[in-house]
Simulated scan of single mutants.
Amino acid sequence: MFVLSTFVLGAVLMAFTLGAGPFEDVVGALKQGDTNGLSRYLDNNVEINMMGKSNSYSKAQAEIILKDFFSKNQVKSFELIHQGEATGGGSRFGIGNMTTSGGNYRTSFFLQKKGNNTVLDKLRFETK
């Protein structure tokens, strides 16, 4: 019994040490304007809405678009103001206010459970 409880405690501690999870990673990447951090979670096809123009892009295209956006809009701050989960726990979303060198944006993102992975399938940057 002692060995089992020690193993479970070790697994829980390791989970906390390795990272907080996809949702927290995406929030952290948005705070930093970190395209590589976001790219880790991008789905094969990603819907991106920037200033009212929405389109679906491949992962490679989405990386280029995000890199361009963050190079022109250095993030000064990102404050998460709302988050939630869809019933059934299959998806999560976050909404926040992003202040950049190029303006202020209401930023939304949507994470979807896909098999054993969690993917980022929608991003919105709306001018405030």
Rank of each mutant, 00 (worst) to 15 (best):
V27N: 09
V27G: 05
V27C: 09
G28R: 10
A29G: 06
A29T: 05
L30A: 06
K31V: 05
Q32H: 06
Q32L: 15
Q32Y: 03
Q32V: 09
G33R: 10
G33M: 05
G33I: 02
D34I: 01
D34P: 05
D34F: 07
T35G: 10
T35W: 02
T35P: 01
T35A: 11
N36A: 13
N36F: 02
N36C: 04
N36K: 12
N36Y: 02
G37E: 03
G37P: 03
L38A: 06
L38C: 06
S39T: 06
R40H: 07
R40F: 03
Y41M: 09
Y41P: 02
D43N: 15
N45P: 00
N45G: 03
V46E: 02
I48E: 01
I48D: 00
I48C: 05
M50Q: 07
M50C: 02
G52D: 07
G52W: 05
G52P: 06
G52V: 12
K53H: 11
K53N: 15
K53R: 15
S54N: 04
N55D: 05
N55W: 00
N55Y: 00
N55E: 04
S56P: 00
Y57I: 04
S58N: 10
S58Y: 07
K59H: 03
A60D: 08
A60L: 09
A60T: 08
A60E: 13
Q61A: 11
Q61W: 02
A62V: 06
A62R: 04
E63Q: 13
E63V: 14
I64P: 00
I64K: 12
I65G: 06
K67P: 00
D68A: 08
F70M: 08
S71W: 00
S71A: 09
S71V: 00
K72R: 13
K72Y: 02
N73C: 11
N73V: 01
N73F: 01
N73Y: 01
Q74K: 15
Q74E: 14
V75T: 10
V75S: 07
V75A: 10
V75M: 04
K76N: 11
K76W: 00
S77Q: 11
S77W: 03
F78W: 04
F78R: 04
F78M: 09
L80W: 04
L80Q: 10
H82V: 04
G84W: 00
G84P: 02
E85L: 08
E85V: 09
A86T: 15
A86P: 01
A86I: 08
A86K: 08
T87G: 03
T87M: 05
G88F: 07
G88A: 12
G88I: 07
G90L: 10
G90H: 04
G90T: 07
G90A: 12
S91E: 07
F93A: 15
F93T: 05
F93W: 14
F93M: 11
G94V: 08
I95K: 10
G96S: 14
G96M: 13
N97A: 13
N97Y: 11
N97Q: 15
M98S: 10
M98I: 12
T99H: 14
T99Y: 12
T99L: 11
T100V: 13
S101Q: 10
S101T: 13
S101K: 14
G102A: 12
G103F: 08
G103W: 05
N104S: 14
N104D: 13
Y105G: 07
Y105H: 07
Y105P: 00
R106E: 13
R106W: 02
T107E: 01
T107C: 11
T107A: 08
S108K: 12
S108V: 14
